[in-house]
């Protein structure tokens, strides 16, 4: 479908054709937003972080070699952006009161999917309690649909470690989810 691959677009950006970044933005800003949203549960923060990633892509475009997948490089930068933001203002584990209210309102309004919405609500809370190491592999694997080798490259860890982390993260989540379910 896409006549130009992400890699070739990014290589054009690297060569000085900055406008090609616009196409990459169109292709990936939603996915990136999703990643940050799952990691922080804050809409505004996530939008800022997405901008930050695109800025870094421009600034550090020389570090893109085109050997690996563009997506992997993008999540590598995204993770660094998130890491820096956490260091600065503790973005993680911080629930915005208004957004929490939105969640709850959305949950109560949905009739048919009420139970599923409730599940999602429970999961949100459960995921909050995961360590960021576990949360990121889970988000990348489940929501961003990255393969293990892609995650490994993005996080600079081995594929085996990714596998173990995903497995453990899901295990923890399962425990927590079941606990919350029975409490309900």
């Amino acid at each position: 479908m896409n006549s130009l691959t992400d890699n070739s677009l990014m290589l054009r950006v690297k060569a000085g054709d900055m406008d090609k970044m616009g196409l990459l933005f169109e292709r990936h800003h939603r996915a990136l937003f999703g990643f940050f949203y799952h990691m922080t549960h804050q809409k505004n923060t996530s939008e800022d972080l997405v901008q930050n990633v695109f800025y870094r892509m421009l600034k550090y475009r020389q570090t893109f070699t085109g050997e690996g997948e563009f997506r992997t490089w993008m999540y590598h930068l995204a993770r660094n952006v998130l890491h820096d933001s956490v260091k600065q203002n503790k973005t993680l584990h911080h629930y915005d009161v208004n957004e929490m209210a939105d969640h709850l309102a959305g949950g109560a309004l949905a009739d048919e999917g009420f139970e599923k919405q409730q599940d999602a609500e429970q999961l949100h809370k459960a995921m909050e309690t995961l360590s960021s190491e576990h949360r990121e592999v889970l988000v990348l694997s489940r929501f961003q649909e990255l393969k293990y080798d892609e995650i490994a490259n993005a996080l600079n860890i081995t594929e085996g470690t990714v596998k173990v982390r995903v497995h453990r993260a899901l295990g923890e989540l399962k425990k927590m989810f079941v606990k919350n379910e029975s409490r309900r």
């Binding site: 937003f33 999703g34 949203y37 799952h38 809409k43 959305g106 999917g113 599923k116 919405q117 599940d119 999602a120 429970q122 999961l123 949100h124 889970l138 489940r142 929501f143 899901l170 989540l173 399962k174 989810f177």
Partner: peptide, 12 residues
């Protein structure tokens, strides 16, 4: 079940 519930999580 957990995996599928995760799929239900909405992103604005």
């Amino acid at each position: 079940q957990v995996w599928e519930a995760m799929g239900q999580m909405k992103v604005p």
